[in-house]
Amino acid sequence: MLKTRIIPCLDIIKNKVVKGVNFKNIKVMGNAVEMAKKYSSTGADELCMLDINASYQNRKTFIKTVEAIAKVVNIPLTVGGGISEINDITDLLNAGADKVSINSAAVKNPKLIRQASLKHGSQCIVVAIDAKRYEKQMKVVIKGGREITNKELVSWAKRVHQLGAGEILLTSMDTDGVQKGFDSAMLKKVTSNVNLPIIASGGVGSLEHFYLGYLTKSTGLLAASVFHSGRYTINTVKKFLDKKGVPVRL
C-alpha cells in the first residue's frame, strides 16, 4: 500500500536553515547539511529545500549546499526557489536534486512547465502553488503571498496538470506560519478536482494536524517549524499516524 509521505522542509539562505515570516525576523535554525542528514536518517520520506533568498551572489553557495545535501541523503530531494528558466532546473538536477519545485516562474511563464517536463520528465517537476482567499475565491498568489494574481486556484491546478507537472505542492497563505493546522477546505478542493499527488503545506502545529492533513487526501504532508524546533521527531509523527490507521513507512 502507498504510504503517506512526511516531508520536512528546509528554508535556506546560503547554507543555513532559517525560519522567518516573509523574510522578516529571520532566525538561523541550523546547518543545512547536518539537518538534512539527520532527517534522512530518522525517517523522513523526502526532503524539500527552498532557496528563500535567491540573489545572484547567494546562488552559488546554495547550489553547493544542494550538492552537499545530495551526497548525504538517500531519499528523494526536492529543490526550489529562484527558478526562472529551464537552465536553472537543469543546474539543480545536475547538482543532485531529484525534483525541482517551480513557483512564481510557472505563473509568469506556464510554458516553462511543459518545457521542463518534456526535457526532464514529469516525475521531477513539482509546481508549487501558494493560494489565499480573496473576494470569495481562492486565488493563486506570488511573491510569498504579497501579490494576488487573477488565477483561480482549481483552474490553475488543472492547468499545471495538463502542462505536465508531476506533483503539486500547495501552500495556503491563510494558514501558513500560524500553526493552527493545514487548510483542509483548500486542500480538499484541489485533491477532489486534480488527479495528481498533492503535498499539503502551511500551518501544521500539532500531531492531530498531520492526521487532518491525511484526511484531505493529500499524499504528502510538509512541515518545518515543528521539526526544526524539536517539538516532534518524524518518528513521533509517524507512530501517531500509524495508530490512527494511516499508512506510513516506519
Binding site: R5, E167, P197
Partner: peptide, 13 residues
C-alpha cells in the same frame, strides 16, 4: 484505473 492518483509516487511495499 481512473480513481488512482497518477503518477504512483512515494513509498510502497
Amino acid at each position: 484505473n481512473k480513481k488512482l492518483i497518477i503518477p504512483h509516487m512515494g513509498w510502497n511495499s
